[in-house]
Structures are given as C-alpha cells and as structure tokens.
Amino acid sequence: MEPLPLRRLDLGWFVRPGTETADGRPRVEPAFGYLVRHGGELVLFDTGIGTADAATDAHYRPRRRPLRAALAAAGAAPEDIALVVNCHLHFDHVGGNPLFPGTPILAQSAELDLVRAGGHTFEELVAFPGARYEELAGEAEVRPGLWIVPTPGHTAGHQSLVVRRPDGTVVLAGQTHASASDFAAARLAETARAEGAVPPLPEPDAWPARLLAFDPRRVLFAHDASVWEPAG
C-alpha cells in the first residue's frame, strides 16, 4: 500500500489531569504523529508516547500504540523514513525515536539545550545508540517546500513543520495550542488587532503571524483531532 501524501498516525492516548487543564477537569487526549510524502521522501513528524517511569505513567495513564504498527497501517516502515522532525522532545512526542539510528532528526538548538540541562525528558528516548540530531537555530527550509518554523511557548524549542503542497499548504503545529479552537481564537485575535479593536486584547505571540504568512489551508495538531481551516 502506497502511503498517502499526508497521513495522520494514531499513536495512542493519555489522560491529562485536571491540574493541567483550563477547566480543572481531566481530559483524554490523543497522541498523533504525521507521515508526509514530500519530494519522493517520507518525513515523520513526531513518533509517539515513549516509555516513562512509574510516576509519570501514574500521572498520565498513557495507552501507547507502537509506532511500527501505526506506520505499517499506513504502508510504511521505520526503514522507509528519510527524515524525522520532533515538535519538541517531551516523552509523548519522541517515543519512537530509538527506531531511527542514523536517520536525521531535526530539533531546535534551544530544545536540545533543555535536554542537556537535564530533567526535560527521558534521556534514553533521545540519547539512544546511533542518534543523529541535526540542530536548527531558527527557521529553515530543510527541503524545497518543507519549512521548519520555531513556535516557542509550550517549550523554548518547540517547532512546527510547514508543508507546501499543490492543493494548499499544510502546517503541522504540534503542541503550539491544546486545540484547533485555541489556535482559531489566537488567529481571530490577530484579526481583531489588525482591524483596530479596542484593548484589552490577548497578548500576541510573534510566531502565529509567521505561520499564517504561509497561507495554510489546514493546520493540524498533536493532541487534537480537529483541524483548523481558514474561514471561507
């Protein structure tokens, strides 16, 4: 089976406790990766929920779907992947990284600095034998029509992947926002500001305007099945 040009991978779920949600109630969230066929290569964005310690598992109660199985359902295997991109290096986004010794894995220098400082993630998920991280210090067009854009917030080194396609640009936004609705609210706040709305208004981040400058037709997220699309 030939992989589709863009395929969402179901990599399991976890329960975010009420201490980490806006309304104080626990919420079950999916963990998604994305398989992208671009320029004759397969690119993988995020690799699933990794093995954690007992305390972390008790806190989030994850149910993991093996990355190899998710890729097989999409007609691919780890050996087919030419490039891995992690939006950031927390354990729920890098679980399958050890399947890729020798494969370039793109991450921001700011994110790798957090790993080196300790306590940011489970190091065995990122410092495995054969790990080949390529550090980026900001925005980069890593392949023609394939852009990495820093989107700090959730972590200092968070990044998004912009995919130029004939049918419209797609942004894989990772955990820039908890949901597509949150992204839509941030986008509308930018519109309100540009059209002279009277304060108070939400404080803007610098990067949503950069993502929107690519004129995306779809924005997809790591922990939300909903998709943002422009009005009209």
Rank of each mutant, 00 (worst) to 15 (best):
1 M>Y: 04
1 M>H: 10
4 L>V: 05
6 L>T: 09
6 L>Q: 11
8 R>Y: 10
9 L>T: 02
10 D>G: 08
10 D>L: 04
11 L>H: 01
12 G>R: 00
12 G>M: 00
14 F>S: 01
14 F>P: 02
15 V>W: 00
23 D>E: 14
24 G>Y: 09
26 P>C: 12
27 R>Q: 15
29 E>R: 11
31 A>K: 03
31 A>D: 08
32 F>C: 03
33 G>M: 07
34 Y>V: 03
34 Y>R: 00
35 L>F: 08
36 V>H: 06
42 L>T: 00
43 V>I: 14
48 G>N: 04
49 I>W: 12
50 G>P: 05
57 D>I: 05
57 D>C: 07
57 D>G: 07
59 H>A: 08
62 P>D: 09
63 R>V: 14
63 R>N: 13
64 R>H: 09
67 L>I: 03
68 R>E: 15
70 A>N: 07
71 L>R: 03
72 A>L: 07
73 A>N: 06
73 A>G: 15
78 P>S: 07
81 I>Y: 01
83 L>Y: 07
84 V>Q: 02
84 V>W: 05
84 V>D: 02
87 C>F: 10
92 D>N: 15
96 G>E: 06
97 N>L: 14
99 L>R: 00
101 P>Y: 05
106 L>D: 05
112 L>D: 11
114 L>H: 07
117 A>G: 13
117 A>Q: 14
119 G>E: 08
123 E>A: 14
124 E>A: 15
125 L>D: 06
127 A>D: 14
128 F>S: 05
128 F>A: 01
130 G>H: 11
131 A>I: 11
132 R>I: 08
132 R>S: 14
133 Y>F: 15
142 V>Q: 05
142 V>M: 02
143 R>S: 04
143 R>E: 11
143 R>P: 03
145 G>H: 04
148 I>C: 07
149 V>M: 01
155 T>L: 10
161 L>T: 05
162 V>R: 01
163 V>P: 04
164 R>G: 13
172 L>Q: 01
174 G>V: 01
174 G>Y: 10
181 S>T: 14
181 S>H: 14
184 A>G: 12
185 A>G: 14
188 L>N: 15
188 L>Y: 15
188 L>M: 15
189 A>G: 08
190 E>D: 11
193 R>T: 03
194 A>L: 11
196 G>P: 08
197 A>L: 12
198 V>R: 10
200 P>W: 12
203 E>S: 09
205 D>G: 10
207 W>V: 02
213 A>M: 11
216 P>H: 04
216 P>Y: 12
226 S>P: 11
228 W>N: 02
229 E>T: 15
229 E>Q: 15
